[in-house]
Design a protein around this nucleic acid. Sequence first.
DNA 1: CCATTTATGTACCGATTGGTACGTAATTCC
DNA 2: GGAATTACGTACCAATCGGTACATAAATGG
Lengths: 200, 200
Amino acid sequence: MAERGRPRAFDKDAALHKAMRVFWTSGYEGASVSELAQAMGINKPSLYAAFGCKEALFREAIELYEKEEGAPVGAALEAGRTARGAIETALRVNARCYTNPDNPRGCMVVVSALAGSPENNPVCSFLADSRRESEESFRRRVARGIAEGDVPESADAGRVAAFYATVMNGLSIQARDGATVDALERVVDSAMAAWDAIAR
Amino acid sequence: MAERGRPRAFDKDAALHKAMRVFWTSGYEGASVSELAQAMGINKPSLYAAFGCKEALFREAIELYEKEEGAPVGAALEAGRTARGAIETALRVNARCYTNPDNPRGCMVVVSALAGSPENNPVCSFLADSRRESEESFRRRVARGIAEGDVPESADAGRVAAFYATVMNGLSIQARDGATVDALERVVDSAMAAWDAIAR
DNA sequence: CCATTTATGTACCGATTGGTACGTAATTCC
DNA sequence: GGAATTACGTACCAATCGGTACATAAATGG
């Protein structure tokens, strides 16, 4: 079962973590392959052998991000006993992630490739897909709330989801602009204070 | 009063408009000087002679953006008879700008350099300053509303501003992700429905 | 021990990056 | 009609971009 050739001399997962942070900090285009390799502690040929190309490395980094930072949000969304509580927790988890002093600021899916040169368009739309999927998961949670009776039947799940997704995305910009956790928490307070006016 | 040497053969303002659109579409790093020059209909030496360097051109482009797309928002903010109405109009003007089919999507100040390579950090923080200034103008408008009596004295102007700035920034992401004008308008509806719960 | 397989570091690839040197064309001042 | 001044297009710069050829090292299978 053991691998055949010479064993890899670096920890691929650890290297991917390093790459994730570089992309998260500098963005897809702002992170050069040389810079990435250096941060990962390997040479470029090792990077290419292990990950294929810059874009593939980025996609793996985003997958890792979604597993480590996104999954807890998804879990909170499922675990919440009401749609309102679930979405509130999701926002608060994100607010803390976006301002965690151990992390680059903001959501990696938002900050790392909002715009880019035409040839990198696939990267931008890949991230856009991911963001739309987040909004869709909000919508599903609200719809479930309607089905379970904790959200009025008359509520428009798509509209509620679009509003909270907008706030969530906005939190990334605020975080990049230096907003503190407390400031983001207050924004979440405000957003949640609107619930009854929106989900009715 | 006439100029001394050979007259410039191109319309500097028209060229700047073209550059603005390229930066708005592709971002600061995603727009190459060659691409910019081509879109502007001039050669690179003319670009450098007229604008100095890439970063200076970008700053002029942002100034132009703020004059043409930002100023109407500022005007709406001043003109509104109440803080609530003023902020609502500001958001709606932005929602239309961000989804205008004649424009690239989203706010240029948000989308064109959220992250970037370390050496372009000045560009990112220049834009962050601009965004913070927008939030500050929201805050001043709410404070004026308190002074004029259309907002309760107990309201926290900074908190109200932070919330609506977050929504406004979030609108840019939604627009980039393909949201329609109507969708953004509904988000603004939701945000404004929260007013009484927030500014109290 | 030897063939096979995979990873490693060095040294390189063509293309593109932001930016310029330079000779020439077009204008104003005197 | 010069001299001075400014803009023009061509052709170029070093540096970096994403990516790779290649010789060598380290492992497994027989």
